[in-house]
């Protein structure tokens, strides 16, 4: 009899946590692989305007980014407060855009070189003059597909 009397009433066996590290590691590896570290830090103010008729920019490997905006606080002293173009990590003048596009295009695999999109990430307080210069440069190097990157929202919020 005594053999079976050991079981005490009401005690629930503890859940084994031995597999917890494995589960957590699995999650960890997932996030490690999907994480993309930012490759260029922004040196310009970049508050994008809103638009409602947006299309998603799929396939990031086919996109070349151009940033435009006022230099941030720390760069204000050296570069002034007028909107500037940022290519990769440097400030640039409009005439350098063409070369930059050609360089970036050469870096991409052959089959993607004809389907590249140029994403213009422009601060909403920038002037169109600078944008027109960029557009002219893009036309010169035949990079005709552009995407004005915006936030999704009501476009009339831009006007305030």
């Amino acid at each position: 009899m005594s053999k079976f009397a050991k079981k005490k009433d009401g005690e629930v066996p503890a859940v084994s946590t031995a597999s917890l590290p494995d589960i957590v590691f699995m999650l960890l590896f997932f996030f490690m692989t999907v994480t993309v570290m930012k490759d260029s830090s922004l040196k310009v103010e970049n508050v994008l305007p809103n638009a409602s008729e947006v299309k998603k920019l799929e396939k990031k490997d086919r996109v070349i980014y151009i940033y435009v905006g006022k230099p941030t606080r720390e760069y204000e002293k050296t570069f002034g407060t007028e909107p500037k173009i940022q290519l990769n990590d440097k400030f640039a003048s409009p005439s350098e855009v063409g070369d930059y596009i050609l360089m970036e295009r050469a870096k991409k695999p052959q089959e993607l070189q004809n389907v590249l999109t140029t994403a213009l990430k422009v601060d909403k307080n920038a002037n169109m003059g600078l944008i027109s210069d960029i557009k002219q440069e893009l036309r010169k190097v035949n990079a005709l597909k552009v995407n004005y990157t915006t936030y999704e929202g009501d476009a009339f919020n831009n006007l305030q």
């Binding site: 947006v54 299309k55 557009k135 893009l138 010169k140 597909k145 552009v146 995407n147 915006t150």
Partner: peptide
């Protein structure tokens, strides 16, 4: 994140 925006084609030179 996926960026979104207005797609446009520039006219060729």
């Amino acid at each position: 994140e996926t960026d979104a925006g207005l797609d446009r084609m520039l006219p060729p030179m």
